[in-house]
């Protein structure tokens, strides 16, 4: 855990941004850009991160950064990459590498931006796409997206008398991305900094499209205390709700394996958005999370969990990869 000390002191997301106190996405973005460094260009979708970081005449970004619209970060990044490539070819700019990075939230990725993302992945642009998934449309005040987890209450899937929160299962972006056969995709969490940084570096170094899906806990959207962001992110991983893994050349590798998982209930109980969820739904979610975890382990060529699959306490500190 002392490895974080080796990271650069340079801040690429300048403080003074208007993110919520305890914003998980801000933590993730800070880490991501420590790994990416200066020689990049960023295309950012409309969303929380865009709004909190770029009120004219101020910007938090230390690298060249552009915001155009909500659904097209991948297409704008495609254009930047094509432009730089053409200019380099024609000798109009020098040959030093400039990595193009697209960033968007879960709405900008899994919903409105899915087509642009699919197009850019399929065309094979040399860029890194990062989805900061806070599991709802937080910028507009917490409405459900296709990435909102089952059972979570949002402003458009409230926990009412008849309907109880989100009725559909979270869209699996990693599988959608995998169907494009891109060289590299991974999930990451700001609660595991060294793992996250390693994946960002890998994604940036690989030639061709790479995809990172980062779970970014959101205090107001999830109904958690500001100080709990990192802890909740860790629980998401340790319960199997958000497994950390990589997809490289068709192979799946678990970044963090557990002999036993923490019961999902522990993760859900800490969050206002799951308040009042009944036992039946809880059981259903637990079962499905387990199934997905087992499936992932099979795909990674690992032995499935044994029947006594739960443990009481979490791993106290992170394992660095």
């Amino acid at each position: 855990m002392f490895a974080v000390k080796t990271l650069t002191d340079r801040e690429y997301l300048a403080p003074g941004h208007r993110g919520c106190s305890g914003c998980g996405q801000a933590v993730a973005v800070r880490m991501v850009h420590k790994a990416l460094g200066q020689r990049i260009v960023v295309a950012c979708a409309t969303g929380c991160m865009e709004v909190i970081s770029s009120p004219f005449p101020q910007s938090s970004w230390e690298m060249p950064w552009i915001h155009v619209a909500f659904e097209n970060a991948a297409a704008v990044a495609s254009g930047i990459e094509a432009g730089l490539k053409a200019l380099r070819h024609k000798g109009k700019i020098d040959n030093r590498k400039i990595k193009v990075v697209a960033m968007a939230g879960d709405g900008g990725t899994a919903d409105i931006g899915l087509q642009a993302l699919s197009g850019a992945l399929e065309r094979g642009h040399d860029f890194l796409y990062i989805c900061y998934d806070n599991e709802a449309y937080m910028n507009t005040g917490v409405q459900r997206s296709s990435s909102t987890p089952y059972g979570a209450s949002t402003m458009t899937t409230p926990a009412g008398r008849i309907q109880k929160g989100q009725a559909t299962w979270k869209k699996n972006m990693m599988e959608i991305v995998a169907a494009h056969h891109i060289p590299y995709a991974a999930t990451a969490s700001p609660s595991y900094p060294m793992d996250l940084l390693g994946k960002v570096k890998k994604g940036a170094e690989i030639k061709g499209p790479a995809y990172l899906h980062i779970l970014s806990p959101c205090p107001p959207g999830w109904g958690i205390e500001a100080e709990d962001t990192i802890g909740l992110g860790r629980l998401a991983v340790e319960t199997g709700a958000f497994p950390l893994y990589e997809q490289e050349e068709g192979k799946i590798r678990l970044s963090l394996d557990f002999d036993k998982l923490i019961p999902l209930e522990k993760y859900l109980k800490g969050q206002g958005r799951f308040r009042g969820i009944d036992q039946e739904r809880m059981d259903y979610m637990q079962e499905r999370v387990l199934e997905m975890w087992q499936d992932l382990k099979r795909k990674a060529g690992l032995r499935e969990l044994r029947p006594s699959r739960f443990r009481k306490e979490g791993v106290k500190w992170i394992r660095t990869s």
Binding site: V41, A43, I66, V68, A69, E71, N72, A74, A75, V76, A77, S78, G79, I80, E81, A82, G83, L84, A86, L87, K92, I93, Q115, A116, S118, G119, A120, E122
Partner: peptide, 18 residues
């Protein structure tokens, strides 16, 4: 894959100086 992306791409590319 669409005109929406066609114009988005033009914006990115032109902003990169092409």
């Amino acid at each position: 894959e669409s005109e929406h992306s066609a114009m988005s791409l033009c914006i990115g590319s032109q902003a990169a100086g092409a």
